[in-house]
């Protein structure tokens, strides 16, 4: 469990829950806030027995000296963090910024596409493009209206915003690829597209822009341990060459990425992940039972 007693570690200064699976953590690390650039990621280890997980930096505030992470509780580690990472607690380890920062081109018109969890990390890029003077079109995809977050933040840095939901409960009904289609139809002069989200979504985006020959950068999220180019777990196929996402990326040309390979490689630890999740459920259940027993006695 993250340490609440102070001392070593990295303090969580704010937290926001967007839904029952998505939560935001703001962590104090002035040096990291100063160094971070759009597109970079950090590795977090919540406690001493934890695993090291890569998370894309969703925002950084140099004045407050903080970085922001938006996390989806899917695996054991992210679910445990959802339970334990409260304001005032500390993460055992936080290292970064890692990876090559996104190259903010002198593009005139840019499409910034975020799907699900990818909505948060595409924000610093949208903001950076806006600051560089580009016309920014945001396309954000969520499953339904209840899961929507940061709409206002995006409206502040996008010239146009297309919200997509699977069920049409907010914005247009459909996937982000539908949003891309509409944006491209309206703006034939888009120079560049940035797409961040689950691999299947990024693959869809790359396919959507390919016929229009719009340069499309995607941010890859393979399995990694150290994040410094040492383990090679994060190797991805980019065209004919193998690259390490942690030090050669995480941004790559979406039209060259072998997404099927990426998706298969992301399955590597599925059986152990299932085991860990089951164990975590059991621990939570036992904890609730003990707490209930303690409360009544």
């Amino acid at each position: 469990m993250p340490d609440a007693t102070g001392g070593s570690g990295f303090e969580i200064v704010a937290r926001e829950d967007f839904s029952d699976v998505t939560y935001l953590l703001e962590i104090r690390h002035p040096q990291l806030a100063k160094a971070a650039r759009p597109g970079q990621f950090v590795i977090v280890m919540p406690h001493e027995h934890g695993e090291r997980i890569p998370l894309t930096i969703a925002d950084f505030d140099r004045d407050r000296g903080t970085i922001t992470l938006v996390i989806q509780a899917v695996g054991k580690t992210t679910r445990e963090m959802q339970r334990d990472c409260q304001v005032g607690t500390r993460l055992f380890a936080l290292v970064g910024p890692m990876g090559i920062p996104s190259h903010i081109d002198r593009a005139k018109k840019v499409l910034c596409v975020g799907g699900g969890l990818g909505v948060a990390p595409v924000y610093p890029q949208a903001r950076a493009y806006k600051e560089s003077g580009a016309y920014v079109i945001g396309v954000l995809g969520f499953r339904n209206r209840d899961l929507v977050f940061w709409e206002e933040k995006f409206r502040a840095c996008c010239d146009e915003l297309i919200l997509c939901t699977d069920d049409g409960s907010a914005g247009i009904k459909g996937l982000v690829t539908e949003g891309i289609r509409q944006a491209v139809a309206k703006h034939p002069d888009i120079d560049e597209c940035v797409a961040i989200g689950p691999p299947v979504m990024m693959k869809g985006c790359a396919e959507a822009t390919r016929p229009h020959k719009i340069k499309t950068m995607v941010s890859l999220n393979p399995v990694m341990v150290d994040g410094t180019g040492m383990c090679g777990g994060c190797r991805v196929k980019i065209g004919e060459v193998v690259k390490f996402a942690c030090v050669d990326g995480p941004d790559f040309d979406g039209h060259l990425v072998d997404f099927d390979d990426l998706m298969f490689r992301l399955q590597r630890y599925k059986p152990t992940e299932r085991e860990a999740n089951a164990k975590f459920d059991e621990n939570c259940r036992m904890r609730n039972i003990t707490q209930a027993a303690g409360g009544s006695g």
Partner: peptide, 23 residues
Amino acid sequence: NELLTRCNLMHARDFPAYDTPMQ
């Protein structure tokens, strides 16, 4: 490197007492 880091530094050999998995 990956095998050894998982096993040695991250204690994957003691999974699930430590969270890092190992195939």
